[in-house]
Amino acid sequence: MSTIFDLEEIEKKVIENLKKVYDPEIPSNIFDLGLIYNIEFEQKNNYLHCMITMTLTSPTCPVADSLLEQVKYVTLAVDEIDEAFVKLVFSPPWDPSMMSEDAREIMGASGAAMPF
């Protein structure tokens, strides 16, 4: 008998966890910054795999490895997910227009310079 997953609910949990991951140089979480391009799920038998496609504000980001590990860790923290994969891409390149309105407000209120 195959397990039925509520992927919409699981995606909400993944997003909630991704919003806890911050680039140490920018006062906003990676989800609101627009660094997460895609969240996909694949069910294999009774196992659920999650694939996150993401980017960085810069290809030379000094904390890239740490951020990728954090993304994998918080994704696996969702009980229903058995395996997580993080794919780093630079196309399309990130730019500030990808930020949520919340991220723009936080950046403006903190006086943070735009990451360019």
Rank of each mutant, 00 (worst) to 15 (best):
S2I: 08
T3M: 06
I4R: 15
F5C: 00
L7Y: 05
L7M: 07
E8V: 09
E8W: 09
E9T: 14
E9N: 14
E9H: 15
I10T: 03
I10Q: 10
K12Q: 11
K13A: 05
K13Q: 15
I15N: 06
E16W: 02
E16C: 02
K19E: 09
V21L: 09
V21W: 04
Y22Q: 08
D23G: 04
E25F: 11
I26G: 00
I26N: 03
P27T: 07
N29F: 13
I30E: 13
I30Q: 14
D32W: 04
L33K: 06
L33I: 13
G34A: 11
L35R: 05
I36T: 04
N38F: 13
E40T: 11
E40L: 06
F41D: 09
F41C: 10
E42Q: 12
N45H: 06
N45D: 11
Y47C: 02
Y47F: 10
Y47H: 08
H49Q: 00
H49E: 00
M54H: 05
L56C: 14
L56V: 10
S58L: 00
S58C: 03
P59L: 02
P59E: 07
C61A: 11
C61M: 12
P62D: 04
V63E: 07
V63K: 10
A64N: 04
S66L: 12
L68I: 02
E69M: 15
E69W: 14
V71E: 06
V71I: 11
Y73H: 14
Y73M: 09
V74D: 05
T75C: 11
T75I: 04
V78I: 02
V78P: 01
I81L: 06
I81S: 05
I81M: 10
I81P: 01
D82V: 00
E83V: 00
E83W: 01
E83A: 03
A84Q: 04
V86R: 08
V86F: 06
K87Y: 01
V89R: 15
F90R: 12
S91F: 14
P92D: 00
W94Y: 09
W94V: 01
D95I: 08
S97L: 07
S100W: 08
S100P: 06
E101F: 06
E101Y: 11
E101P: 07
D102W: 14
D102F: 14
I106F: 08
M107I: 15
G108K: 14
S110E: 15
G111P: 07
G111C: 05
G111Q: 11
A112Y: 12
A113K: 13
M114I: 12
M114F: 14
P115R: 00
F116R: 06
